[in-house]
């Protein structure tokens, strides 16, 4: 197991002394390879807090997180011996807002900032930058531009490129597709899928888009008020009864399928994942 959560609780300290409990008794295991996980839940349910535990940015109040064999507990840092920095190279975390991390004069410098911090030679880092900028759907010309003169979507891509250039073993993305147009969103998701398929790396995505969950994910985690309420296959999740109480939507494709089943008064053999699959199923029936 690459990442293992054991009875993790996390509280945000508050000014008036009453602590806000963001994570409650989380138990979770994430494999190093071959998982495409989506993390869903309403705003404030603890998704971002959960992923910040995955590369030891924050430490649990009680319980422990084990990342690549290194056990992280409340007072891990105080004991001094443990180096947390290498973990952040192995588990790459992309934050929701690119404004929080872009700071260099050029996109190139910004992308190689991460790898250089982890001791990669500058020439190697530049080579990587030239590759990843194409992966995120921008061309090499962008490398010379200032990151502050880019559009919101382009900034987002550059910030993702900055993490990809670190070549992490596990890629964690906090709402990578928010603020992007449908095409940009699909391109990026295909990129993550490509990383997952070609390199067999684990990818974890926070999202609010149920279509993404249903179409891409091999495993889905649902957070609700600090609890991890569901951990399993997306197909099973959307057939559950209490999905409404977690304030989650049903993916469009499932809604359409159910309505068709109703209208045509049939039962399809399988649950389709794409319009194409649905089309095939309908053709069989008719």
């Amino acid at each position: 197991m690459a990442i293992k959560f054991e009875q993790v609780n996390f509280e945000y300290p508050s000014f008036d002394g009453t602590n806000f409990s963001a994570l409650k008794d989380i138990n979770l295991e994430i494999a190093e390879k071959g998982e495409f996980i989506t993390l869903i839940g309403e705003t404030g349910s603890g998704k971002s807090t959960l992923v910040q535990h995955m590369n030891a940015l924050i430490r649990p109040t009680t319980g422990s997180v084990t990342i690549y064999g290194i056990k992280i507990e409340k007072d891990t840092k105080k004991k001094g011996k443990v180096k947390l920095n290498p973990l952040r190279q192995r588990v790459g975390l992309v934050f929701q807002f690119p404004e929080y991390q872009l700071f260099e004069e050029t996109v190139l410098k910004d992308i190689i900032f991460g790898p250089k911090n982890f001791g990669v030679k500058e020439s190697v880092a530049i080579e990587r930058a030239k590759q990843v900028i194409k992966h995120v759907g921008l061309d090499e010309e962008y490398l010379k531009r200032s990151p502050f003169n880019l559009s919101g979507g382009e900034k987002k891509r550059v910030s993702i490129a900055g993490i990809l250039a670190m070549e992490p073993d596990i890629l964690v993305l906090d709402e990578p597709t928010s603020g992007l147009d449908p095409k940009g969103r699909d391109d990026l998701l295909k990129l993550f899928m490509g990383i997952h398929n070609d390199l067999n790396k684990t990818v974890i995505i926070i999202t609010h888009d149920m279509n993404t969950v249903y179409k891409y994910a091999s495993r889905v985690l649902v957070m609700n008020e600090g609890h991890l309420v569901y951990d399993g296959l997306p197909q099973e999740l959307f057939s559950k009864e209490n999905i409404k109480s977690w304030n989650l939507d049903i993916p469009d494709i499932i809604t359409i399928t159910r309505q068709l089943e109703d209208k045509l008064d049939v039962n399809f053999d399988s649950q389709p994942h794409t319009i194409q699959e649905l089309f095939e199923l309908v053709k069989e029936v008719i």
């Binding site: 924050i58 920095n85 790459g92 700071f103 911090n117 982890f118 900055g162």
Partner: peptide, 29 residues
């Protein structure tokens, strides 16, 4: 700080030259 830490900025250790760079990485954003 968290966003830069996840890109390998270690605010507790490092040489002086690195430290300057780390502070810039905080100040500009």
């Amino acid at each position: 700080m968290l966003a830069q830490a996840s890109r390998g900025v270690d605010f507790t250790e490092g040489k002086f030259k690195d430290k300057v760079m780390q502070i810039i990485s905080l100040l500009v954003p």
